[in-house]
Design a protein around this nucleic acid. Structure first.
Lengths: 245, 245
DNA sequence: TGAATTGGTGTCTTTAGGCCACTAAGATGT
DNA sequence: ACATCTTAGTGGCCTAAAGACACCAATTCA
C-alpha cells in the first residue's frame, strides 16, 4: 500500500501510462479587426482526425518548450501569426468522452486579441491552409471540426460580455488610434451603436489613455491620437455600457 | 504518412500512450456558509504525492462514470459531501511542468456553492480527513498541497467578483430565507456592509425572488420568507454593488 | 407598558450614462 | 474665395440606479 512507501519510492514507480489519461490540447480563438469586422483565424486540419475540416488553431502541450499552459497558447499563436505579445485570456476548458474520436479528451481554450497588420500568416506542417473568417459568418452553415463551434461560441460570448465593462478593444488597435476608431471597435464587437459623448466621457473618466501629441489627418477635421497608458492593464468599469435605450 | 491513411486506419493505430500526456485532474473549491462565515472544504491527502498535506478535493476523470468534465466535478462533490445539486461553475485551468512532482500536470478547477446543512461529510479511501476552513484563515500561514493556494485564491477571487453583479449568494442559502439573511450573505462574501434600502431595492427590481407566504419569527419583528423564483438562473445586474462611499 | 431590537419604507442626493444640439476644423466643388 | 459637407469634439439637460438617512412597524424582554 501507498501508505508504507516514501514519496520518493512512490514517484520512482509512478508511470502515467498505467492510468487512463485524456487527450489534452490547447485551442484558441485568435481575433482581429480586419475590413471593419471582427474576424477569427481558422486552420484547415492537415492530419487525422477531422482531416480537411476547418478548426480553431491549437495543438498539444510540448513538455520541452512549455513551462505552463499559457506558454502552449502563446507558442501556437506565434507559430500561426508571428505575433508574440497579444492580449491572451483563458476562456474555458471543455472535456468529454465523445468530442474527439481518439477518446476522452480535454481542450483548454484561450482567446487572443491581435493587431491585424502585425500578422504574418504561415501555414506549417500541421495545417495546409489558414484563413480569417468574420464572426458574422460563423453561422449554422459553417461546419467546424470536433466541438469547435461550441468552443468558438464560448470565446465570442466571453469577448462580447467583457467588452461591455472593460477596455479590451484597445488591444485590437495599433499603438496609436483615435477615439472614433476606438469607439468603432466597441461598436463592431457589441454590434450596436454607442453615443459619442457618453463613450468619450466614459473613456476619459477611466483615465486609461494619453495623447501621443500626434494627429490623424485626411478625413476632414484632424483627430487627436491616443495610446494606452503604460500601466497597461485592462480597465474594469463598474457599469456596463448600455447603448441606445 | 497520415495523409494516405483513412481516418479509420488512423484511429485503429492510434494509442494515446505513444505521446507525452499531462496528468489531468479536476479540483474544486466547495464553499458554504457556516457560523456566519464563508468556508471552504479541504481534505487531507491520503496518498502520495503530498501525502498528509491539506488540499482541495479533487481527483481524476473516471472514463466510465464521467461523460463530460462537469460530471467529474459533480461526482467528487457528491462523494465528499453527499450534495448533488449544487451551484457549480468552472473557474480556470492550471497547468505546468512543476506543479506536481509526477510531471507535467493540468487541473481543471471548479467552485461549488452548497448549503451547509445538506452536507454529510464523508472521508473515504483517498483522504483520511476532511474539514471546513473559513476563508479568512486562508493566509500565508496555511500551507496547501501543490499550487492549491493559488488555485483557491482564483476561486475566491471569482466568487467575490461575481457576487458584485449577480445573485449568486442565493445558492448558499436554504430554500427559504429572509432578505436580511440574503443581505448578510452578500456582506460576508464581499466583506463590507451594504445599505439596507439599496440592497432591497436592487433585489426587488431584479424580480428574482417570491414570497413563500411564511414568516420567520423569533427575533423581534417577524420577517417575510422568500425563495428564488423557479426559472432559477443566476441574475446579472448591469451595475456593480458599491457599498459605502 | 415602555425601551430595545430587528424588519421594512419614503424620499432626497449622487453618479454615470443617454440624448441632442452645438461649435471646430479641415476637405471638396464651383 | 467661399459655401457646403463631413468628421472631431463639447455643453448641458435628463434619467436610472444606487447611496444616505430618517422614519414607521412589529415583535421580544425587562
Amino acid at each position: 500500500m501507498t501508505a508504507k512507501q516514501t514519496e520518493k519510492q512512490f514517484l520512482k514507480s509512478y508511470n502515467i501510462h498505467d492510468f487512463d489519461v485524456p487527450l489534452t490540447s490547447v485551442d484558441m480563438a485568435i481575433f482581429t479587426l480586419k475590413d471593419e469586422q471582427l474576424q477569427v483565424l481558422l486552420v484547415k486540419r492537415a492530419q487525422h482526425p477531422a482531416l480537411g475540416q476547418w478548426a480553431l488553431p491549437g495543438g498539444f502541450i510540448d513538455f520541452k518548450k512549455d513551462k505552463v499552459l499559457a506558454d502552449a497558447a502563446r507558442r501556437k499563436l506565434a507559430e500561426k501569426t508571428g505575433v508574440d505579445t497579444p492580449y491572451l485570456e483563458q476562456v474555458a476548458t471543455f472535456g468529454g468522452a465523445d468530442r474527439d474520436p481518439r477518446g476522452w479528451s480535454v481542450t483548454i481554450t484561450y482567446f487572443a486579441l491581435i493587431v491585424c497588420d502585425e500578422v504574418e500568416l504561415s501555414g506549417d506542417e500541421s495545417s495546409d491552409d489558414v484563413k480569417w473568417v468574420p464572426i458574422k459568418d460563423i453561422t449554422n452553415k459553417l461546419e467546424l471540426a470536433f466541438d469547435h463551434k461550441q468552443v468558438l461560441a464560448a470565446c465570442i460570448e466571453r469577448l462580447k460580455n467583457k467588452v461591455q465593462y472593460t477596455s479590451l478593444p484597445v488591444n485590437l488597435l495599433p499603438e496609436e488610434f483615435t477615439l472614433t476608431e476606438l469607439q468603432q471597435t466597441f461598436e463592431i464587437i457589441l454590434d450596436k451603436k454607442i453615443e459619442k459623448k457618453s463613450f468619450r466621457r466614459r473613456i476619459d473618466d477611466a483615465d486609461i489613455l494619453e495623447e501621443t501629441g500626434n494627429m490623424k489627418t485626411g478625413s476632414n477635421r484632424p483627430a487627436k491620437l491616443y495610446r494606452a497608458k503604460p500601466k497597461g492593464e485592462n480597465f474594469y468599469f463598474t457599469r456596463n455600457i448600455e447603448g441606445p435605450r
